[in-house]
Design a protein around this nucleic acid. Structure first.
Length: 572
RNA sequence: GCGCCCAUAGCUCAGCUGGAUAGAGCAACGGCCUUCUAAGCCGUAGGUCACACGUUCAAAUCGUGUUGGGCGUACCA
């Protein structure tokens, strides 16, 4: 209906252009849903925008637009208000059409093909497999999954990917942490992974030892490698790693693999339990094994962007807008994380996606410039890569901020949260906030009073409708939507009319919270309606029409909640 | 120091990409269950949109500056 109105408005403007009142057609003719009923159903500010061009006051121009507006059965009244707003009052029958559309299209209502089947690669979470997912990661999980659903709803083809950082120093630190717990030494480095889950993995290895995984005995070796001669903590742990690799020989790899697999499978289960699906788990190590990382560095060398300094190879990212040049190969010959990242992103572009989206934690913003620089250097368009930053979650317990750290082992896992408050409440809590806003998460509140979560408010509206419909179904033959004319019915119908636009902007702007807020509002209007009006009345026409209206509301709640990954219980 | 993000009711957050009297929830106070689920509804109170300039018909929204917070600034990942 909005599009129809846009066309009519354009026709009116064309007449004004023909009469030399206006020079040319504006590129974008915006029509907004009005805020309140007094301002009609739709409003346009076009007169204010074009008044300069028309060399008359915006009010006068608005009058001219109105005068030349084509007749339409859909438009009941046009009002010029204030500085020149044009308010459109639609006929009741045209507004009510949405109810029939929703019923007809059901679960498909609101879907569109704006994306035209473009392929999107969406990478999100990609937390290092050094520990279980915690509530800090939860935001990225829920946000990413919702963005994927929304983009699909508007016609994109989306592949979800998790980049597994299974190479590099962190992994070695994880491996020796497990190993040191395995040998039960008291001397555990400060900067090792201290969490309880490390003990669990060590315990599991003990179970497997009976299966003769280890060919060497480990116990004695542990003693000689805990040397406190390194003053520097980081150096100390590097020494531990080197020592451990040397002493354990081929068994080192077994500890390493076992540790990472154990954690990774935990992460996979967490995500699956949370209803998040990935198409691919992309291994960082595979970039080493396939030689791609090596190849990319050579390529950059050939292109002349690499120089040597202090024994390391530097990539002149400053040529492409970065603040500093970056090391890609260290003086010890080992590639940096950044080097793998270049190869990884190069690979993403090679795979032929139309759009590449990364969802990163806000702490990674410093990497944007260098990753984009490398894309430019490799002759791809950096604008095709969109990096969405998700701001941090501040956790509070007992009124005090608690910092979460995988390394120190102090965190609350996502699994714990889900088990305490449930999937839906956890999801909705994250999704209701826009991702660019830092958010405070009160753990006590989240756990103890989960009823306060607005997700139940929406689900309750859905359940109430289910309950009513169980007692009476609308008969399509005997319906007249024009009887739905009390204030709350108009509000509901008006709100239903907004759904398509909400879904669209929510998807295209990567803002699932917009949809979440809309659903809350729609549920609110329904609850008011429920308390104010009776549905199962004797008058057949009225009853059937009201039942049809709430069926439409139920459908929209269901469609919206599905996109956000939230369940729709029939009763509560 | 430099860079990125943020600042809206006592608290937690929206504000539809510049619009017409700034909105919810929680907390406070007062009402509504012999009638379709009270996890609900109705009402009252609560604001100098951090501050100051600027851009224009119009600024919570855009620009600059100030203040206050978060994050980043590795041959770690």
């Amino acid at each position: 209906m909005k599009q129809r109105l846009q066309q009519l408005l354009m026709q009116s403007l064309e007449v004004l252009i023909d009469n030399n009142i206006l020079e040319n057609m504006p590129e974008n003719i915006r029509i907004d849903h009005s805020k309140n009923k007094a301002q009609g159903d739709f409003a346009s500010n076009i007169a204010m925008l074009l008044s300069k061009q028309a060399q008359c006051s915006s009010k006068v121009l608005a009058q001219k637009i109105k005068a030349n507006f084509p007749d339409s059965v859909d438009v009941e009244k046009i009002e010029i208000v204030g500085p020149g707003f044009i308010n459109f009052f639609m006929s009741q029958s045209s507004n009510a059409l949405v109810v029939e559309d929703i019923i007809k299209q059901g679960g498909n209502y609101g879907l569109s093909n704006i994306g035209m089947g473009q392929r999107v690669l969406l990478e999100f979470v990609s937390a290092n497999p050094t520990g279980p997912l915690h509530v800090g990661h939860g935001r990225g999980v829920v946000y990413g999954a919702a963005v994927a659903h929304l983009l699909r709803a508007v016609g994109f083809e989306v592949d979800c990917e998790y980049y597994v950082n299974d190479a590099g120093r962190q992994m070695d630190i994880l491996a020796i942490s497990v190993y040191l717990r395995y040998v039960e030494t008291e001397q555990f480095p400060d900067n090792g992974y201290k969490g309880d889950y490390i003990f669990d993995i060590a315990k599991k290895i003990k179970g497997i030892k009976k299966l003769d995984i280890f060919t060497n005995t480990c116990k004695d070796i542990s003693k000689c490698k805990i040397q406190k001669n390194s003053i520097d903590k980081e150096r100390h742990i590097d020494d531990l790693i080197a020592n451990c690799k040397f002493q354990l020989g081929s068994d080192y790899r077994k500890v390493f693999d076992f540790s990472i697999n154990s954690i990774l499978s935990g992460i996979k289960i967490d995500l699956a339990d949370f209803g998040v699906e990935y198409h691919q788990w992309f291994s960082e190590q595979s970039l080493v094994d396939s030689g791609l990382s090596e190849k990319i560095v050579k390529k950059l060398q050939d292109l002349g962007y690499i120089y040597e300094k202090g024994g390391a190879l530097w990539f002149r990212t400053t040529d492409f807008g970065d603040d500093l040049d970056r090391v890609v190969v260290r003086d010890n010959g080992i590639h940096t994380y950044f080097s793998y990242d270049i190869a990884y992103h190069f690979g993403k572009f090679e795979r032929g996606y139309d759009r590449i989206i990364n969802i990163w934690g806000a702490d990674h913003h410093g990497y944007i410039a260098r990753v984009k620089a490398s894309i430019k250097a490799l002759n791809y368009n950096p604008d095709k890569l969109e990096i969405l930053l998700v701001q941090f979650v501040n956790l509070f317990r007992g009124g005090k901020k608690v910092s979460m750290s995988t390394r120190s082992g102090s965190f609350i896992t996502l699994k714990e949260l889900r088990e305490e408050v449930g999937n839906d409440a956890a999801r909705f809590f994250y999704i209701l906030r826009k991702s660019t806003q830092q958010m405070d998460f009160n753990l006590d509140l989240a756990k103890s009073k989960s009823n306060e979560n607005p997700v139940f408010y929406i689900q309750y509206a859905y359940a109430r409708i289910c309950s009513v419909l169980k007692q009476g179904k609308p008969f399509m033959a005997d319906i007249d939507l024009l009887v739905l004319n009390n204030e709350l019915e108009s509000l509901l119908i008006k709100e239903l009319n907004r759904y398509k636009d909400i879904l669209q902007s929510s998807a295209l702007n990567y803002e699932p919270h917009v949809l979440a807020c809309y659903l809350r509002k729609l549920a609110g209007y329904f609850h008011s309606y429920y308390n104010n009006s009776e549905f199962l009345v004797d008058d057949d026409k009225l009853r059937n029409s009201r039942l049809l209206l709430i069926t439409a509301v139920q459908q929209i709640l269901s469609n919206g909640l599905n996109l956000l990954g939230i369940s729709t219980p029939n009763s509560m």
